[in-house]
Design a protein around this nucleic acid. Structure first.
Length: 810
RNA sequence: GCCGGAGUGGCGGAAUGGCAGACGCAGCAGACUCAAAAUCUGCCGAGGUUUAUCCCUUGUGCCGGUUCGAGUCCGGCCUCCGGCACCA
């Protein structure tokens, strides 16, 4: 009987077709039941699905199918994060148009996903490179522009020489480009920025208030990335001028210990001072040298710390002391005010700098049990202590001094408490073709003018030459560039940079609530219905990039009046990476396992089972070909067991033991799926199968077999559907409800109690479940083996844990 | 340097403070077979003692502590992984 053989290929395509024909995963807001929005991070359509995708999407699929079986309305969409560099590189190298390359990849990968049996509502699919999608992104941009939430400025920026485009801070990892790993250079360029720093405080506060369902690890990373620090701004008057230098410090208590001032080389006052004081030559040389320190060298600390005297002096606002102003290469223009008051007695960097340039060291914080002497110190004292040499503040604990000095400054209009964030504005422009065009027209008279809504989308022109050199490809397309100013009608030029692709993924989760809505980016009604995301699943690598951006965009769109949601996602799960032979799968290492090969060899269900069983979702997974075979073997075991029982009638002849096993297994699998412990859920089903084989073929009833099939259906949906049908059930298993369990039936008549003597297990007693604790204690104490281990001693204490254990302490 | 997370058999991994190693992989032995594969059964941390399938000791990175009882809680280290890092 060929029918008895498990033929994954035929079964899987049969059910995939069936699901498609019946629109099995189409979700209808009008149907009954509670809603659940399950989203996995979109893939980039690189050409083929890889094992990381398989794992990510299988985890999501189990969660989705399980809830569907519980009668929950699950919104489970899929689409494509489709703009990006690889498409453009393909165009440069192989003369394929990025659009053709991308849509072809999408078609192939959609097919792969269907062959994996994922329960997506394909009717909601979109690609972010569809102009019907990015049109709305352009609208959001213009609205932000009108509010002043996006702006253009010239500054030092990360530049990837290989990708030939600028990068956001979040796209630089260890000084290298996130995409191609080239060393990132610093360049001064005029770029577009989102004013994300305006939201720094809300992004920070909401981590604690609204992200209870997020992993602590991700939340910590976001807090650090935002990097709030409390301190004070202090104005230092410049000698012989009305100007002031404003500095930021977290240690206003050390203000009396300032002996010099350090400015970043880019600080506007540096050149001014040099000119005024005839120091241009030295300062220019210093700027030239400092500007060459790239991101990587800064991180690795491979450059020498140095500085140059600018010739200027400023005055300590409290003491009136005259202090020299230096430019120093370790001061960052992007943090605080780009200027630092130097306190060598109490800051290690300033200490080293002072030693190198022979600057005075002044002690203003005295530790409790040690007298500091500037002439013998070999490092700064950065710890706590009592303020000295600080005028009216002498004697204060320095912790109190921070507040006291700040208040004093404020009262005298010399500065005051402030907070600073490490988070910087998001540089969004890219000098590439394959991205959303920035909808701005530059006009000589009107400046930067947003494209009016009725003219959106600004579509990417198709006929473009891809050379890989010479700036934005769009800048060479005259028919795109030349246009009229929407405001005054005179000749204008279109912006030719495109948006960072992280912009598309910053709001797609909202669009899925209403993917075809044509009046605005989102339909507030549908948004209110589906959002926030109940469960989001993706890689940990997006902890500070995408996962901050999509929170930011949600808040921006809220403040533009498009909806009223504060946070896009309630629960986040970050899955581990897939490894093989101890290394991340990659073509260059030659350790890639292709999902297509696995489907051809074992079928999708086997691959799904293995990727769920081999490790808990949040941990890294080591691919193991033998393990895959083990998962396949398990599926065959289930298949055979069910096939041997197709004809059993519905009469229940379930023994108490069989009932216990069934209820226990349902309970365990249900609870484990709820908490994403799929590996132990599968282990529980395996145990159940082992039990059923153990009791013998003739003793198994229909209830057991059907329960088994239902339990595996979120995990191995194709095999489950086929077995369900073969068992004579007409409708799809999808319409069938998840099995329930009865706690009372899990309880057994007898229990095994562990008896310990001095904490060591010495005996196991089988007792009736309803035996009293006192009786349990007595039967333990009268047990022969137990007595022999008591060595004739009287127990000092006997601990009885009901239904579990007796510990006799001698 | 700072902040997280982890460390359990040959391997992946299980264990609300209560029998450490579920389940699987690999391995070993056996059954079936002419044989092999598949399948099924048993064993499978280390050491010792018996070799009856009994039993004992020891064992969850290291050192202490709390507890009748610690893989689990607390303190101090070590190692690995991740994040941040001249942030004033």
């Amino acid at each position: 009987m060929t029918d008895k053989i498990y033929n994954a290929k035929d079964i899987e395509s049969k059910w995939q077709n069936r699901w498609e024909e019946t629109h099995a995963f189409k979700v209808d807001e009008k149907a009954k039941g509670e809603k659940y929005y399950l989203l996995e991070m979109l893939p980039y359509p690189s050409g083929r699905i890889h094992m990381g995708h398989v794992r990510n999407y299988t985890i999501g699929d189990v969660a989705a199918r399980y809830r569907m079986m519980r009668g929950v309305k699950v919104l489970h969409p899929m689409g494509w994060d489709a703009f990006g560099m690889p498409a453009e590189n393909a165009a440069i190298q192989r003369k394929v148009h990025p659009a053709d390359w991308t849509y072809k990849n999408i078609d192939y990968m959609r097919g792969q996903m269907k062959r994996l049996g994922f329960s997506y509502d394909w009717e909601r699919e979109f690609a972010t490179c569809d102009s019907s999608y990015y049109k709305w992104e352009q609208l959001i941009f213009t609205r932000m522009f009108e509010k002043g939430w996006v702006y253009k400025k010239t500054s030092q920026i990360n530049w990837c020489p290989s990708c030939k485009t600028v990068l956001a801070n979040e796209q630089v990892s260890a000084g290298c480009c996130w995409r191609c790993d080239s060393g990132v250079e610093m360049k001064s360029m005029s770029q577009w920025y989102f004013r994300i720093t305006d939201y720094a405080e809300e992004l920070l506060i909401d981590i604690d208030d609204k992200l209870q369902g997020w992993p602590e690890r991700v939340k910590t990373m976001q807090r650090e990335w935002i990097g709030k620090s409390h301190g004070a701004n202090i104005d230092f008057p410049i000698e012989g001028s009305d100007q002031k230098i404003q500095i930021f410090t977290t240690r206003p208590d050390t203000l009396f210990g300032v002996t010099f001032m350090s400015l970043a080389w880019e600080h506007p006052l540096v050149k001014e001072f040099a000119k005024k004081n005839g120091k241009e030559k030295e300062v220019e040389a210093f700027i030239e040298k400092s500007s060459k320190i790239d991101h990587k060298a800064r991180l690795e600390d491979t450059y020498e710390k140095d500085g140059v005297f600018t010739g200027a002096y400023c005055l300590n606002p409290l003491t009136g002391d005259k202090v020299p102003v230096y430019a120093a290469n370790f001061v960052l223009m992007e943090y605080g005010t780009g200027a630092v008051m130097a306190v060598p007695g109490h800051d290690q960097r300033d200490f080293e700098f002072a030693k190198k340039y022979n600057l005075p060291i002044k002690i203003v914080i005295q530790p409790i049990d040690e007298a500091l002497d500037p002439s013998t110190m070999d490092g700064a004292w950065e710890g706590a202590g009592t303020m000295i040499n600080s005028g009216e503040f002498d004697g204060l604990k320095n912790k109190d001094g921070i507040k006291a000095v700040s208040e004093h400054l404020k009262k005298n209009k010399l500065g005051g408490s402030t907070v600073t964030y490490r988070l910087k504005d998001w540089c969004l422009s890219r000098q590439r073709y394959w991205g959303t065009p920035i909808p701005i027209i530059h006009c000589d008279k009107c400046g930067a003018v947003p494209v009016p809504e009725k003219e959106l989308p600004v579509e990417l022109p198709h006929d473009v030459e891809f050379t890989g050199v010479g700036g934005s490809p769009l800048s060479r397309v005259a028919s795109f560039v030349d246009t009229d100013c929407p405001k005054c009608g005179s000749a204008g030029k279109r912006e030719t940079d495109t948006m960072d692709t992280f912009v598309e993924s910053s709001w797609y989760m909202l669009r899925y609530a209403c993917p075809r809505y044509d009046k605005a980016p989102v339909d507030p009604k549908m948004m209110k219905y589906w959002l926030p995301i109940d469960q989001y699943i993706g890689g940990i690598e997006h902890a500070v990039g995408h996962l901050i951006y999509f929170r930011y965009f949600t808040k921006v769109m809220r403040d533009l009046g498009m909806h009223d949601l504060d946070e896009p996602c309630k629960n986040l799960m970050t899955q581990g990476m897939v490894y093989k032979d101890g290394a991340k799968m990659s073509k260059s290492k030659g350790n890639v396992v292709d999902p297509d090969d696995m489907i051809a060899k074992y079928g999708a269900d086997t691959m799904r089972l293995f990727s769920l069983f081999a490790a808990p979702p949040e941990k890294d997974l080591e691919w193991n070909d033998k393990g895959v075979e083990g998962s396949h073997r398990f599926l065959l075991r289930v298949w055979r067991l069910v096939m041997d029982h197709l004809d059993i009638d519905g009469e229940t002849k379930e023994s108490p033991e069989a009932a216990r096993w069934r209820n226990k297994t349902v309970k365990k699998v249900t609870e484990d799926i709820e908490r994403f412990h799929f590996n132990t859920a599968i282990a529980a089903v395996m145990e159940y199968v082992n039990y059923l084989y153990g009791v013998g073929v003739e003793k198994i009833d229909r209830l057991a077999v059907e329960t088994l099939v239902l339990l595996i259906s979120p995990l191995a949906p194709h095999a489950a559907e086929e077995l369900w049908e073969k068992l004579g059930n007409g409708e799809s298993i999808l319409g069938k409800s998840w099995p329930t369990f009865d706690e009372a039936m899990i309880a057994s008549d007898t229990l095994t109690i562990v008896v310990q003597v001095n904490g060591k297990v010495r005996e196991r007693l089988d007792i009736p479940a309803d035996m009293s604790d006192e009786d349990v204690k007595q039967s333990a104490l009268s047990n022969e083996r137990v007595i022999s281990f008591m060595e004739g001693k009287e127990p000092r204490k006997v601990i009885v844990i009901p239904k579990k254990l007796v510990n006799i302490v001698l």
